[in-house]
Simulated scan of single mutants.
Amino acid sequence: MTSERDVRPRPHVVRRGTGVPLVMVHGNGVDHRLLLELDEVFAAPGRWERIYVDLPGFGRSPALEGRGGLTDLADWLDAWVGETVGETPFAVVGNSMGGLLAADLAARRAGQCLGLALLAPVVVAQHDRRRRARAQVREDPQLLASLDPADAVEYAAVAVDQTRQGWEAFRRAVLPGLRAGDPEAGRRLAAAYALPMPSPGDLDLPVLVVTGRQDAIVGVDDQWDWARGLPRGSTASLDRAGHNVHLDRPEVVAALLADWAWQVHPAG
């Protein structure tokens, strides 16, 4: 007899280091490589085991069967974390849609999750209800002209400050995931893209929220209004940064995450 556990898709996972489990949850349309850019922040020997997962239908992970909506991804993530870390205390970092999923996970496992870091998180799932920022783009026409036209379109769609350094980070961290996902899984997810953000009062643990001031995809206002209710929240909104805030302002985001990681780790 085949159980639900037997048919649940086995994801592609990259594990680095040893120590307290740190689950890294990427956003929509990309894969785990987006968050690999942060690995050095948590790489001190023996402190964190970084667990990067490709969500079902993204990167190299097979898609969910059936509806494949956002609540289905949330249920899958909770079950997978339970299988992966058991009852061991863990922390979680989530980006964009992965931020919403990470917050949902932390609320479900409130007694087990040590801390939550959210980078440009989705707070309002419905696109037409988000209060989005107006992207103020610093264009570099010469840079865009030097790129493959398809790459230039993808980069220009999200780059707030177009620079060679920014393009190289986008090429490493974003483009591979954009091209690796399952298009049908993406369509099914879009058709059932609904999941409520947990109440901030239900997250009584260290929570870091970092937003890009020029984020035209999820904005900043919904995030700040939500974060005001966090019992132990820290927030930062960074200028000259869009939706890929950790790629646009890597040094600042790294410093914020390093402080959060020190606060969250059982050893301090």
Rank of each mutant, 00 (worst) to 15 (best):
M24I: 00
H26P: 15
V30P: 05
H32R: 05
H32D: 00
R33F: 02
E37S: 15
V41G: 02
A43V: 01
A44S: 12
A44Q: 09
P45E: 03
R47C: 02
R50N: 01
I51C: 01
I51S: 01
Y52G: 00
L55V: 07
G59S: 10
R60L: 15
R60N: 13
P62F: 10
A63Q: 12
L64A: 06
G68I: 05
G69V: 06
L70F: 10
T71V: 14
T71M: 14
L73D: 04
A74N: 09
W76A: 05
D78C: 00
W80T: 01
V81L: 10
G82Q: 10
V85H: 07
G86L: 12
E87S: 15
E87I: 10
P89N: 12
P89C: 11
F90K: 05
F90S: 03
V93M: 09
G94V: 11
M97V: 05
L100N: 06
A103L: 07
L105F: 11
L105V: 04
A106H: 08
A107P: 11
R108L: 07
R109Q: 14
A110I: 13
G111H: 11
G111N: 09
Q112S: 10
L114D: 02
L114P: 08
G115N: 03
A120E: 07
P121E: 13
P121T: 13
V122E: 05
V123C: 15
Q126A: 15
R130A: 09
R130Q: 15
